[in-house]
Amino acid sequence: MPLLPVGAWLTELTPQHDRFSMSLICDLPVGIGEAELLGTLAAVLDRHDVLRSRLVRGEGGCGWELEVSAPGSVPVAGLVRRVSCDGRWRSPGWRAVAARELDAALGGLDPAGGVMARFVWFDAGGGTAGRLLIVLHHFVVDGVSWRILLPDLAQAYARVREGRAAGLAGVGTSVRRWAHALVEEAGRRGSELGYWRGVLGESEPVLGRRGLDPVVDTMATVRTVRVVVPAGVTRALLTSVPAVFGGGVNDGLLAALGLSVARWRGRERVLVRLEGHGREEVVVPGADLSRTVGWFTSMFPVRLDVSGVDVDEAFAGGGAAGRVVKAVKEQLLAVPDRGVGFGLLRYLHPVAGGELARAAQPQIGFNYLGRFSASDMPEELRGLGWTQVGEFDEIEAGL
Rank of each mutant, 00 (worst) to 15 (best):
S23I: 00
I32E: 14
V30M: 14
C26N: 05
G33M: 02
P5Y: 06
H17E: 06
E34T: 04
L24P: 09
G7V: 09
L10C: 07
P2Q: 02
M22V: 07
S23G: 06
V30L: 15
C26R: 12
L24Y: 01
I25G: 02
V6W: 08
P29W: 14
P29L: 15
R19V: 00
I32F: 07
P29Y: 15
E34K: 04
C26H: 10
H17N: 12
D27M: 15
T11C: 15
C26P: 06
I25K: 12
D18Y: 06
L3C: 08
M22F: 09
V6L: 10
D27F: 14
A8P: 06
P5I: 07
P5S: 05
E34A: 06
L38G: 01
H17A: 10
E36Y: 01
T14M: 03
D27Y: 12
P29N: 15
P2Y: 12
L13G: 04
V6Y: 10
C26S: 13
V30I: 15
G33Y: 06
M22G: 13
D18R: 14
T11P: 04
W9D: 11
L10T: 02
I32Y: 06
P5F: 07
L38K: 00
G31P: 05
L24S: 13
E36F: 01
P29F: 09
L38D: 05
P2V: 00
V6F: 13
F20G: 00
M22L: 14
L24G: 11
C26Q: 13
Q16N: 11
L4G: 02
L10Y: 02
S23R: 13
V30K: 15
G39Y: 07
T14V: 01
M22Y: 05
H17L: 05
L13Y: 04
R19S: 05
C26K: 09
T11R: 08
I32S: 08
G7H: 15
M22Q: 15
L13V: 04
W9N: 07
L38N: 00
L28M: 09
F20W: 11
L28N: 10
V6G: 00
F20M: 11
T14P: 14
L38F: 00
L10E: 02
T11K: 02
I25F: 07
Q16R: 14
M22I: 09
F20I: 03
L24K: 12
L13N: 08
F20N: 07
G31N: 11
M22C: 12
I25L: 09
S23K: 10
A35S: 09
L28Q: 05
T14Y: 01
L37H: 03
A35W: 00
L3M: 03
G39M: 06
L13T: 06
A8W: 07
P29Q: 15
A35E: 14
T11Y: 02
W9E: 08
L4V: 03
D18F: 05
R19T: 08
D27L: 15
E34D: 12
C26L: 13
L28H: 07
